[in-house]
Design a protein around this nucleic acid. Structure first.
Lengths: 140, 140, 140, 140
DNA sequence: GTGGTCTAGACCACT
DNA sequence: GTGGTCTAGACCACC
């Protein structure tokens, strides 16, 4: 079952923490296509946040094709698919990479250390390689 | 001499672009301890932005210990200080790395592609690799 | 200047009406790249709706690359760009076309009449052809 | 015989899919006035859905005058009735056409492409064009 | 002044 | 029960 945890008062907004954790779980193959997400109200109660905050996180996941909503039934893990063009994906990658590298560098990390940490984290996430299905690249 | 460039209309605020570039330049060894920063007015004129914006960027850099002000003389690159413990630095690195990786993964990038892009970007930033001085405890 | 009008109590939610009108205006070349959108609060006051409703509409426009936000400055018309893959665009087109055709048919319209009405509406929107710049198809 | 197919996991609720398909079939002339609908239980078994879902779809169709119930016999295709005036029908058509065109345009489709896709979809629906009976005031 | 996030609580439609 | 929309009002960061 998908376990989500948040820390209030962090620099990252709550809805963003939720989005990232769900994405990670999906990418790591911890959930399967069709699995039900916790209901908006249930997760809100569980995390002690407002249902609207959960709804915002789920909306973001829907727009990126990670989950799908079924009116009156709930949210479910979606079939993976490539939504964005190659160019757009590169653009978005750069947009999140730059602040990350700037922060990493200002923390005093060497370039090689940063690469090592990224590799280490990625290996941990993809510990069971076959679990995470890749979207077909049929649309380039 | 420290060259700063900004792009208006970007999602990142101007003062943030300046802060990041100065941090980058320091980390990349493009400037040395004691080097003078451009004066607030000069840089404001040069970049065609409000002097308050420059002042704000410099304040943030002073707060972070990157530069120091000398009354009546201007701002100068400060002696690097390492505030955080090794553990704290790792924790902070993880905090900014997770959102980045979550975005990268959900954009459909392979682990190796992500590492490649990070390396490429770091190489671009550190064009003269041997110029970057190591902060005292950066190893271990 | 971009004029937005809404009708409350319609089947279409308010935020959707706003989104559609802005898209239309952009596609028809009634606004230019870089033009400022009405501020969230100003439009909310103008339309007598809650600022959150405007914010939701603007967020949807941002995620589709129609507008961009600049913290503390406002929202602005974005440079047009192709965000979605060919496949994803076709999928989304189908998703909105099916309900439209089902409704049109159940209203008793003949296929040819539907096509005629669509053409008529499109001609009206694109009355000044060169006004609407096309995004470059560089990313397929 | 009226063939109904559903896809579970779609954004559109099941009962809506049924309603739309029946309307389509009627408009396309695939069924005639007086034709019997599949019984609620039979269709429920066939589609492997809850009978209540079928009942709800049929109720909606009865409300819209598409089918009629005959106590103890079942549901039958109703005599077409045209409720709306010409002007009202045009207004309603515009109401559903606008969101569709807004989405299509902002997805980057050219006017001609949109028309082509609409035509293609309509041809698929109306595979036997001459079979479609004209409602009385469909002209003008 | 601007946008960004979050809460509390309401009403609606769908299953 | 589920999600979808909207309101009212708060606090924060940025310019």
């Amino acid at each position: 079952m998908l376990r989500i945890q948040i820390t209030t008062g962090a620099s990252q907004p709550i809805y963003r923490q939720i989005v990232d954790q769900v994405r990670h779980a999906v990418a790591a193959g911890k959930v399967r296509v069709g699995d039900a997400m916790p209901s908006v109200r249930a997760l809100a109660t569980d995390l002690v946040v407002n249902p609207n905050t959960i709804a915002k996180a789920y909306s973001a996941l829907v727009r990126d094709g990670v989950i799908e909503s079924q009116q009156g039934r709930g949210y479910f893990i979606a079939e993976p698919r490539l939504i964005y063009t190659h160019k757009e994906r590169k653009r978005r990658l750069g947009e999140v990479m730059n602040p990350f590298l700037a922060e990493a560098i200002s923390l005093g990390f060497e370039p090689q250390q940063i690469i090592d940490e990224v590799e280490k984290r990625l290996r941990k996430t993809f510990s069971s390689p076959e679990a995470a299905p890749k979207p077909k690249d049929s649309a380039s």
